[in-house]
Design a protein around this nucleic acid. Sequence first.
DNA 1: TGTTAAGAAAGTGTATGCAATTTAGATGCC
DNA 2: GGCATCTAAATTGCATACACTTTCTTAACA
Lengths: 217, 217
Amino acid sequence: MKVRKHLVRAGTTVDHMVRAIADHIVTGALHSGSKLDEASLAERFQVSRTPIREALAQLGAMGLVDRRPNRGAIVAVVSQEHLSSMFESMAELEGICARFSAARMSVNERMTLEHEHHASARLVHLGAEEDYEIYNTGFHTRLYQGAHSKHIFELVTLTRSRLAPFRRAQFRIGDRLSKSWEEHDAIVTAIMRADGAAAGEAARAHVAAVSNASAVF
Amino acid sequence: MKVRKHLVRAGTTVDHMVRAIADHIVTGALHSGSKLDEASLAERFQVSRTPIREALAQLGAMGLVDRRPNRGAIVAVVSQEHLSSMFESMAELEGICARFSAARMSVNERMTLEHEHHASARLVHLGAEEDYEIYNTGFHTRLYQGAHSKHIFELVTLTRSRLAPFRRAQFRIGDRLSKSWEEHDAIVTAIMRADGAAAGEAARAHVAAVSNASAVF
DNA sequence: TGTTAAGAAAGTGTATGCAATTTAGATGCC
DNA sequence: GGCATCTAAATTGCATACACTTTCTTAACA
Protein backbone atom coordinates (compact mmCIF):
# COMPACT_ATOMS: atom_id res chain seq x y z
CA MET A 1 0.00 0.00 0.00
CA LYS A 2 2.86 2.36 -0.74
CA VAL A 3 1.08 3.78 -3.75
CA ARG A 4 0.53 7.00 -1.99
CA LYS A 5 1.33 10.68 -2.29
CA HIS A 6 4.88 9.79 -3.21
CA LEU A 7 4.65 12.07 -6.19
CA VAL A 8 4.43 15.34 -4.32
CA ARG A 9 5.96 15.31 -0.92
CA ALA A 10 3.68 17.80 0.65
CA GLY A 11 5.85 18.69 3.59
CA THR A 12 2.54 19.31 5.22
CA THR A 13 1.55 15.76 6.03
CA VAL A 14 2.02 16.21 9.74
CA ASP A 15 0.38 19.61 9.66
CA HIS A 16 -2.59 18.10 7.94
CA MET A 17 -2.93 15.41 10.55
CA VAL A 18 -2.58 17.92 13.36
CA ARG A 19 -5.44 19.89 11.90
CA ALA A 20 -7.51 16.79 11.29
CA ILE A 21 -7.08 15.45 14.81
CA ALA A 22 -7.52 18.89 16.36
CA ASP A 23 -10.70 19.26 14.37
CA HIS A 24 -12.03 15.96 15.63
CA ILE A 25 -11.31 17.04 19.17
CA VAL A 26 -12.73 20.51 18.74
CA THR A 27 -15.92 19.33 17.08
CA GLY A 28 -16.37 16.70 19.74
CA ALA A 29 -15.99 13.69 17.47
CA LEU A 30 -13.30 12.63 19.90
CA HIS A 31 -14.41 13.35 23.40
CA SER A 32 -12.36 14.22 26.43
CA GLY A 33 -10.34 11.32 27.75
CA SER A 34 -10.48 9.19 24.60
CA LYS A 35 -7.35 7.22 23.97
CA LEU A 36 -5.35 8.21 20.90
CA ASP A 37 -3.75 4.98 19.83
CA GLU A 38 -0.71 5.54 17.64
CA ALA A 39 -1.19 2.39 15.60
CA SER A 40 -4.85 3.11 14.92
CA LEU A 41 -4.16 6.67 13.89
CA ALA A 42 -1.34 5.47 11.65
CA GLU A 43 -3.77 3.05 10.02
CA ARG A 44 -6.42 5.73 9.71
CA PHE A 45 -4.16 8.21 7.96
CA GLN A 46 -2.22 5.56 6.06
CA VAL A 47 1.13 6.61 7.40
CA SER A 48 3.63 5.10 9.80
CA ARG A 49 3.73 5.85 13.48
CA THR A 50 6.59 8.33 13.17
CA PRO A 51 4.63 11.28 11.74
CA ILE A 52 1.76 10.43 14.05
CA ARG A 53 4.02 10.84 17.02
CA GLU A 54 5.16 14.19 15.73
CA ALA A 55 1.57 15.31 15.34
CA LEU A 56 0.78 14.16 18.87
CA ALA A 57 3.79 16.07 20.18
CA GLN A 58 2.44 19.23 18.60
CA LEU A 59 -1.07 18.64 19.85
CA GLY A 60 0.39 18.06 23.28
CA ALA A 61 2.21 21.37 23.17
CA MET A 62 -1.03 23.00 22.06
CA GLY A 63 -2.76 21.55 25.09
CA LEU A 64 -5.37 19.63 23.15
CA VAL A 65 -4.05 16.23 24.19
CA ASP A 66 -2.36 14.90 27.30
CA ARG A 67 0.67 12.71 26.71
CA ARG A 68 1.55 10.41 29.54
CA PRO A 69 5.03 8.87 29.38
CA ASN A 70 4.90 5.27 28.19
CA ARG A 71 1.16 5.31 28.55
CA GLY A 72 -0.06 6.90 25.37
CA ALA A 73 -1.97 10.05 24.57
CA ILE A 74 -5.53 10.93 25.42
CA VAL A 75 -7.74 13.83 24.48
CA ALA A 76 -7.03 16.44 27.11
CA VAL A 77 -9.27 16.10 30.09
CA VAL A 78 -9.89 19.42 31.73
CA SER A 79 -11.06 19.86 35.27
CA GLN A 80 -14.03 22.01 36.11
CA GLU A 81 -11.63 24.46 37.65
CA HIS A 82 -9.46 24.61 34.56
CA LEU A 83 -12.51 24.97 32.36
CA SER A 84 -13.84 27.97 34.18
CA SER A 85 -10.40 29.53 34.17
CA MET A 86 -10.40 29.13 30.38
CA PHE A 87 -13.77 30.83 30.05
CA GLU A 88 -12.59 33.55 32.35
CA SER A 89 -9.46 34.05 30.27
CA MET A 90 -11.53 34.05 27.12
CA ALA A 91 -13.70 36.83 28.50
CA GLU A 92 -10.65 38.92 29.29
CA LEU A 93 -9.03 38.25 25.93
CA GLU A 94 -12.17 39.07 24.00
CA GLY A 95 -12.54 42.19 26.08
CA ILE A 96 -9.05 43.24 25.05
CA CYS A 97 -9.75 42.45 21.40
CA ALA A 98 -12.95 44.48 21.44
CA ARG A 99 -11.21 47.38 23.14
CA PHE A 100 -8.39 47.33 20.61
CA SER A 101 -10.81 46.87 17.74
CA ALA A 102 -12.72 49.96 18.78
CA ALA A 103 -9.50 51.93 18.56
CA ARG A 104 -7.79 50.30 15.60
CA MET A 105 -10.21 48.82 13.11
CA SER A 106 -9.97 50.27 9.62
CA VAL A 107 -13.00 51.81 7.99
CA ASN A 108 -13.42 48.72 5.88
CA GLU A 109 -13.25 46.43 8.88
CA ARG A 110 -15.85 48.46 10.70
CA MET A 111 -18.12 48.47 7.69
CA THR A 112 -18.03 44.73 7.13
CA LEU A 113 -18.43 44.08 10.85
CA GLU A 114 -21.55 46.20 11.00
CA HIS A 115 -22.94 44.99 7.70
CA GLU A 116 -22.55 41.31 8.49
CA HIS A 117 -23.93 41.89 11.93
CA HIS A 118 -27.10 43.44 10.58
CA ALA A 119 -27.40 40.72 7.97
CA SER A 120 -27.25 38.11 10.72
CA ALA A 121 -30.47 39.44 12.22
CA ARG A 122 -32.27 37.49 9.54
CA LEU A 123 -30.76 34.25 10.77
CA VAL A 124 -32.02 35.02 14.26
CA HIS A 125 -35.52 35.62 12.96
CA LEU A 126 -35.46 32.34 11.10
CA GLY A 127 -34.04 30.55 14.10
CA ALA A 128 -31.30 29.16 11.86
CA GLU A 129 -29.05 27.90 14.60
CA GLU A 130 -26.53 26.17 12.35
CA ASP A 131 -26.07 29.14 10.08
CA TYR A 132 -25.91 31.53 13.00
CA GLU A 133 -23.24 29.35 14.55
CA ILE A 134 -21.17 29.74 11.40
CA TYR A 135 -21.80 33.47 11.30
CA ASN A 136 -20.92 33.73 14.97
CA THR A 137 -17.53 32.15 14.42
CA GLY A 138 -16.83 34.69 11.71
CA PHE A 139 -17.97 37.56 13.88
CA HIS A 140 -15.57 36.67 16.62
CA THR A 141 -12.73 36.10 14.19
CA ARG A 142 -13.27 39.59 12.81
CA LEU A 143 -13.14 40.91 16.34
CA TYR A 144 -9.85 39.15 17.00
CA GLN A 145 -8.33 40.35 13.77
CA GLY A 146 -9.56 43.88 14.25
CA ALA A 147 -7.32 44.20 17.29
CA HIS A 148 -4.38 44.26 14.89
CA SER A 149 -2.17 42.39 17.31
CA LYS A 150 -0.66 39.15 16.07
CA HIS A 151 0.13 37.80 19.47
CA ILE A 152 -3.24 38.49 21.01
CA PHE A 153 -4.73 36.81 17.99
CA GLU A 154 -2.64 33.72 18.64
CA LEU A 155 -3.56 33.60 22.30
CA VAL A 156 -7.25 34.06 21.72
CA THR A 157 -7.28 31.54 18.88
CA LEU A 158 -5.49 29.00 21.05
CA THR A 159 -7.94 29.51 23.86
CA ARG A 160 -10.90 29.33 21.54
CA SER A 161 -9.79 26.00 20.12
CA ARG A 162 -9.34 24.56 23.59
CA LEU A 163 -12.73 25.81 24.62
CA ALA A 164 -14.58 24.79 21.50
CA PRO A 165 -15.49 21.27 22.64
CA PHE A 166 -17.31 22.71 25.63
CA ARG A 167 -19.63 25.16 24.03
CA ARG A 168 -21.16 23.22 21.26
CA ALA A 169 -24.89 23.52 20.88
CA GLN A 170 -25.01 26.59 23.08
CA PHE A 171 -27.62 28.06 20.72
CA ARG A 172 -30.08 25.29 21.45
CA ILE A 173 -30.58 26.62 24.92
CA GLY A 174 -33.42 28.99 25.63
CA ASP A 175 -33.35 32.08 23.50
CA ARG A 176 -29.58 32.27 23.35
CA LEU A 177 -29.87 33.10 19.67
CA SER A 178 -31.55 36.46 20.11
CA LYS A 179 -29.67 37.17 23.32
CA SER A 180 -26.43 36.53 21.49
CA TRP A 181 -27.43 38.93 18.73
CA GLU A 182 -28.21 41.67 21.21
CA GLU A 183 -24.89 41.16 22.93
CA HIS A 184 -23.17 41.37 19.57
CA ASP A 185 -25.11 44.52 18.92
CA ALA A 186 -23.76 46.16 22.04
CA ILE A 187 -20.23 45.29 20.97
CA VAL A 188 -20.68 46.49 17.41
CA THR A 189 -22.30 49.73 18.51
CA ALA A 190 -19.48 50.48 20.92
CA ILE A 191 -16.87 49.70 18.30
CA MET A 192 -18.54 51.93 15.75
CA ARG A 193 -18.47 54.70 18.32
CA ALA A 194 -14.82 53.92 18.96
CA ASP A 195 -15.71 53.52 22.61
CA GLY A 196 -13.04 51.06 23.69
CA ALA A 197 -14.07 50.73 27.31
CA ALA A 198 -17.69 49.99 26.44
CA ALA A 199 -16.70 47.54 23.70
CA GLY A 200 -14.41 45.69 26.05
CA GLU A 201 -17.03 45.50 28.74
CA ALA A 202 -19.69 44.32 26.30
CA ALA A 203 -17.40 41.61 24.93
CA ARG A 204 -16.57 40.39 28.41
CA ALA A 205 -20.22 40.24 29.32
CA HIS A 206 -20.93 38.36 26.10
CA VAL A 207 -18.38 35.67 26.83
CA ALA A 208 -19.60 35.40 30.38
CA ALA A 209 -23.11 34.77 29.03
CA VAL A 210 -21.77 32.13 26.64
CA SER A 211 -19.92 30.59 29.54
CA ASN A 212 -23.13 30.29 31.53
CA ALA A 213 -25.03 28.92 28.56
CA SER A 214 -22.33 26.31 28.12
CA ALA A 215 -22.32 25.29 31.73
CA VAL A 216 -24.72 22.55 30.77
CA PHE A 217 -22.40 20.14 28.87
CA MET B 1 28.24 4.34 22.22
CA LYS B 2 25.00 2.62 23.14
CA VAL B 3 25.95 2.27 26.77
CA ARG B 4 23.49 4.92 27.73
CA LYS B 5 20.50 5.46 29.96
CA HIS B 6 19.11 2.14 28.84
CA LEU B 7 18.68 1.19 32.44
CA VAL B 8 15.97 3.66 33.34
CA ARG B 9 13.82 4.70 30.47
CA ALA B 10 13.03 8.15 31.69
CA GLY B 11 10.03 8.74 29.49
CA THR B 12 11.07 12.34 29.81
CA THR B 13 13.93 12.36 27.35
CA VAL B 14 12.09 14.52 24.85
CA ASP B 15 10.76 16.77 27.57
CA HIS B 16 14.24 17.25 28.86
CA MET B 17 15.50 18.24 25.43
CA VAL B 18 12.59 20.60 24.90
CA ARG B 19 13.47 22.35 28.10
CA ALA B 20 17.16 22.41 27.30
CA ILE B 21 16.69 23.84 23.82
CA ALA B 22 14.03 26.28 24.99
CA ASP B 23 16.41 27.40 27.69
CA HIS B 24 19.16 28.02 25.19
CA ILE B 25 16.79 30.09 23.09
CA VAL B 26 15.36 31.99 26.03
CA THR B 27 18.74 32.81 27.51
CA GLY B 28 20.02 33.90 24.15
CA ALA B 29 22.67 31.20 23.76
CA LEU B 30 20.92 30.47 20.48
CA HIS B 31 19.95 33.68 18.82
CA SER B 32 17.07 34.41 16.52
CA GLY B 33 17.42 32.83 13.12
CA SER B 34 20.05 30.26 14.09
CA LYS B 35 19.70 26.99 12.27
CA LEU B 36 18.76 24.01 14.40
CA ASP B 37 20.39 21.10 12.64
CA GLU B 38 18.82 17.81 13.57
CA ALA B 39 21.99 15.80 13.21
CA SER B 40 24.01 18.20 15.36
CA LEU B 41 21.38 18.28 18.05
CA ALA B 42 21.18 14.50 17.97
CA GLU B 43 24.93 14.35 18.44
CA ARG B 44 24.82 16.93 21.23
CA PHE B 45 22.20 15.07 23.22
CA GLN B 46 23.49 11.63 22.28
CA VAL B 47 20.18 10.47 20.86
CA SER B 48 18.90 9.71 17.40
CA ARG B 49 17.11 12.20 15.22
CA THR B 50 13.68 10.82 16.03
CA PRO B 51 13.30 12.30 19.51
CA ILE B 52 14.96 15.48 18.31
CA ARG B 53 12.27 15.90 15.71
CA GLU B 54 9.61 15.39 18.34
CA ALA B 55 11.19 18.07 20.49
CA LEU B 56 11.34 20.43 17.54
CA ALA B 57 7.69 19.76 16.80
CA GLN B 58 6.81 20.80 20.33
CA LEU B 59 9.02 23.86 20.24
CA GLY B 60 7.39 24.77 16.96
CA ALA B 61 3.95 24.52 18.49
CA MET B 62 5.18 26.68 21.35
CA GLY B 63 6.31 29.30 18.87
CA LEU B 64 9.94 29.27 19.91
CA VAL B 65 11.18 27.83 16.63
CA ASP B 66 10.03 28.13 13.04
CA ARG B 67 9.89 24.89 11.08
CA ARG B 68 10.04 25.27 7.34
CA PRO B 69 8.99 22.20 5.36
CA ASN B 70 11.99 20.34 4.01
CA ARG B 71 14.21 23.23 4.99
CA GLY B 72 14.92 22.66 8.63
CA ALA B 73 14.12 24.51 11.80
CA ILE B 74 15.45 27.85 12.96
CA VAL B 75 15.10 29.79 16.16
CA ALA B 76 11.95 31.81 15.67
CA VAL B 77 12.60 35.12 14.06
CA VAL B 78 10.05 37.70 15.13
CA SER B 79 9.32 40.85 13.24
CA GLN B 80 9.37 44.22 14.94
CA GLU B 81 5.62 44.29 14.59
CA HIS B 82 5.17 40.89 16.17
CA LEU B 83 7.55 41.80 18.96
CA SER B 84 5.67 44.90 19.96
CA SER B 85 2.41 42.96 19.81
CA MET B 86 3.94 40.50 22.25
CA PHE B 87 4.96 43.24 24.64
CA GLU B 88 1.54 44.76 24.32
CA SER B 89 -0.09 41.41 25.09
CA MET B 90 2.24 40.92 28.00
CA ALA B 91 1.19 44.25 29.45
CA GLU B 92 -2.47 43.29 29.19
CA LEU B 93 -1.89 39.84 30.64
CA GLU B 94 0.12 41.13 33.55
CA GLY B 95 -2.53 43.73 34.14
CA ILE B 96 -5.11 40.98 34.36
CA CYS B 97 -2.93 38.94 36.71
CA ALA B 98 -2.38 41.90 39.00
CA ARG B 99 -6.07 42.73 39.01
CA PHE B 100 -6.97 39.15 39.85
CA SER B 101 -4.19 38.90 42.40
CA ALA B 102 -5.53 41.95 44.20
CA ALA B 103 -8.86 40.18 44.53
CA ARG B 104 -7.81 36.60 45.06
CA MET B 105 -4.43 36.25 46.72
CA SER B 106 -4.48 34.41 50.01
CA VAL B 107 -3.14 36.05 53.12
CA ASN B 108 -0.01 33.98 52.83
CA GLU B 109 0.55 34.95 49.24
CA ARG B 110 0.14 38.61 50.07
CA MET B 111 2.54 38.34 52.95
CA THR B 112 5.32 36.67 51.01
CA LEU B 113 4.81 39.04 48.08
CA GLU B 114 5.23 42.06 50.33
CA HIS B 115 8.00 40.56 52.37
CA GLU B 116 10.12 39.54 49.38
CA HIS B 117 9.46 42.85 47.74
CA HIS B 118 10.81 44.76 50.74
CA ALA B 119 13.76 42.43 50.99
CA SER B 120 14.61 43.13 47.36
CA ALA B 121 15.19 46.80 48.18
CA ARG B 122 18.59 45.73 49.47
CA LEU B 123 19.54 44.35 46.08
CA VAL B 124 18.64 47.65 44.49
CA HIS B 125 20.84 49.49 46.96
CA LEU B 126 23.74 47.19 46.21
CA GLY B 127 23.13 47.46 42.50
CA ALA B 128 23.12 43.66 42.34
CA GLU B 129 21.69 43.36 38.85
CA GLU B 130 22.08 39.61 38.54
CA ASP B 131 20.41 38.89 41.85
CA TYR B 132 17.67 41.39 41.21
CA GLU B 133 17.03 39.74 37.87
CA ILE B 134 16.48 36.46 39.67
CA TYR B 135 14.26 38.11 42.27
CA ASN B 136 12.35 39.86 39.52
CA THR B 137 11.51 36.58 37.83
CA GLY B 138 10.17 35.27 41.10
CA PHE B 139 8.14 38.40 41.72
CA HIS B 140 6.35 38.12 38.41
CA THR B 141 5.79 34.42 38.86
CA ARG B 142 4.11 35.11 42.19
CA LEU B 143 1.95 37.66 40.47
CA TYR B 144 0.89 35.15 37.82
CA GLN B 145 0.16 32.48 40.37
CA GLY B 146 -1.72 34.84 42.62
CA ALA B 147 -4.35 35.26 39.91
CA HIS B 148 -5.47 31.69 40.68
CA SER B 149 -6.29 31.02 37.07
CA LYS B 150 -4.55 28.08 35.45
CA HIS B 151 -5.21 29.18 31.93
CA ILE B 152 -4.09 32.77 32.37
CA PHE B 153 -0.98 31.35 33.97
CA GLU B 154 -0.31 29.24 30.90
CA LEU B 155 -0.85 32.14 28.53
CA VAL B 156 1.33 34.53 30.44
CA THR B 157 4.05 31.94 30.87
CA LEU B 158 4.02 31.16 27.18
CA THR B 159 4.27 34.81 26.32
CA ARG B 160 7.02 35.40 28.81
CA SER B 161 9.13 32.60 27.38
CA ARG B 162 8.74 33.96 23.88
CA LEU B 163 9.65 37.42 25.05
CA ALA B 164 12.55 36.43 27.25
CA PRO B 165 15.22 36.59 24.54
CA PHE B 166 14.39 40.22 23.91
CA ARG B 167 14.62 41.67 27.33
CA ARG B 168 17.86 40.37 28.61
CA ALA B 169 20.12 42.86 30.30
CA GLN B 170 17.31 45.34 30.70
CA PHE B 171 18.67 46.22 34.13
CA ARG B 172 21.93 47.47 32.70
CA ILE B 173 20.15 50.44 31.24
CA GLY B 174 20.06 53.71 33.13
CA ASP B 175 18.53 53.35 36.55
CA ARG B 176 16.06 50.67 35.55
CA LEU B 177 16.88 48.88 38.75
CA SER B 178 15.41 51.47 41.09
CA LYS B 179 12.68 52.39 38.62
CA SER B 180 11.70 48.74 38.47
CA TRP B 181 11.53 48.55 42.23
CA GLU B 182 9.27 51.58 42.43
CA GLU B 183 6.98 50.14 39.80
CA HIS B 184 6.85 46.90 41.74
CA ASP B 185 6.07 48.94 44.82
CA ALA B 186 3.03 50.47 43.18
CA ILE B 187 1.78 47.01 42.22
CA VAL B 188 2.37 45.55 45.66
CA THR B 189 0.75 48.45 47.43
CA ALA B 190 -2.36 48.23 45.26
CA ILE B 191 -2.58 44.48 45.76
CA MET B 192 -2.27 44.83 49.50
CA ARG B 193 -5.10 47.33 49.41
CA ALA B 194 -7.06 44.88 47.23
CA ASP B 195 -7.40 47.65 44.70
CA GLY B 196 -7.70 45.62 41.51
CA ALA B 197 -7.99 48.48 39.08
CA ALA B 198 -4.92 50.22 40.42
CA ALA B 199 -2.92 47.00 40.54
CA GLY B 200 -3.83 46.22 36.95
CA GLU B 201 -2.92 49.67 35.76
CA ALA B 202 0.38 49.63 37.67
CA ALA B 203 1.31 46.24 36.19
CA ARG B 204 0.51 47.41 32.69
CA ALA B 205 2.62 50.50 33.15
CA HIS B 206 5.44 48.37 34.51
CA VAL B 207 5.50 46.10 31.47
CA ALA B 208 5.31 49.10 29.18
CA ALA B 209 8.39 50.50 30.90
CA VAL B 210 10.20 47.18 30.53
CA SER B 211 9.18 47.16 26.88
CA ASN B 212 10.75 50.56 26.35
CA ALA B 213 13.88 49.59 28.23
CA SER B 214 14.17 46.51 26.05
CA ALA B 215 13.69 48.44 22.82
CA VAL B 216 17.46 48.62 22.62
CA PHE B 217 18.36 45.02 21.58
C1' DT C 1 32.75 36.76 -17.37
C1' DG C 2 28.20 35.85 -16.20
C1' DT C 3 24.46 32.54 -16.58
C1' DT C 4 22.50 28.30 -16.36
C1' DA C 5 22.22 23.18 -16.26
C1' DA C 6 23.64 18.87 -14.31
C1' DG C 7 25.14 16.28 -10.75
C1' DA C 8 26.81 15.48 -6.06
C1' DA C 9 26.37 16.42 -1.21
C1' DA C 10 23.78 17.57 2.68
C1' DG C 11 19.65 17.46 5.15
C1' DT C 12 14.71 16.56 5.99
C1' DG C 13 10.53 13.20 5.94
C1' DT C 14 8.85 8.65 6.66
C1' DA C 15 8.98 3.53 7.32
C1' DT C 16 10.45 -0.26 9.84
C1' DG C 17 12.60 -2.90 13.58
C1' DC C 18 13.79 -3.73 18.18
C1' DA C 19 14.12 -2.66 23.19
C1' DA C 20 11.58 -1.23 27.23
C1' DT C 21 7.35 -0.59 29.57
C1' DT C 22 2.68 -0.96 30.58
C1' DT C 23 -1.49 -3.72 30.65
C1' DA C 24 -4.28 -7.81 30.50
C1' DG C 25 -4.89 -12.49 31.41
C1' DA C 26 -3.92 -16.64 33.75
C1' DT C 27 -2.50 -19.09 37.67
C1' DG C 28 -1.89 -20.10 42.39
C1' DC C 29 -2.90 -19.03 47.17
C1' DC C 30 -5.68 -17.68 51.13
C1' DG D 1 -14.85 -15.97 45.74
C1' DG D 2 -11.28 -12.42 46.44
C1' DC D 3 -6.53 -11.11 45.96
C1' DA D 4 -1.64 -11.19 44.87
C1' DT D 5 1.88 -12.77 41.44
C1' DC D 6 3.73 -14.13 37.28
C1' DT D 7 3.72 -14.37 32.27
C1' DA D 8 2.37 -12.94 27.56
C1' DA D 9 0.39 -9.54 24.51
C1' DA D 10 -0.08 -4.87 23.34
C1' DT D 11 1.90 -0.40 23.11
C1' DT D 12 5.22 3.18 23.54
C1' DG D 13 10.20 5.04 22.93
C1' DC D 14 14.10 5.18 20.23
C1' DA D 15 17.46 3.88 16.50
C1' DT D 16 18.42 2.92 11.98
C1' DA D 17 17.56 2.82 6.97
C1' DC D 18 16.07 4.70 2.97
C1' DA D 19 13.44 8.06 -0.06
C1' DC D 20 12.80 12.55 -1.38
C1' DT D 21 14.19 17.81 -1.42
C1' DT D 22 16.97 21.33 -1.17
C1' DT D 23 21.36 23.31 -1.72
C1' DC D 24 25.98 23.51 -3.10
C1' DT D 25 29.49 22.51 -6.66
C1' DT D 26 31.08 22.14 -11.09
C1' DA D 27 31.12 22.57 -15.78
C1' DA D 28 29.33 23.90 -20.17
C1' DC D 29 27.75 27.51 -22.94
C1' DA D 30 26.78 32.07 -24.74
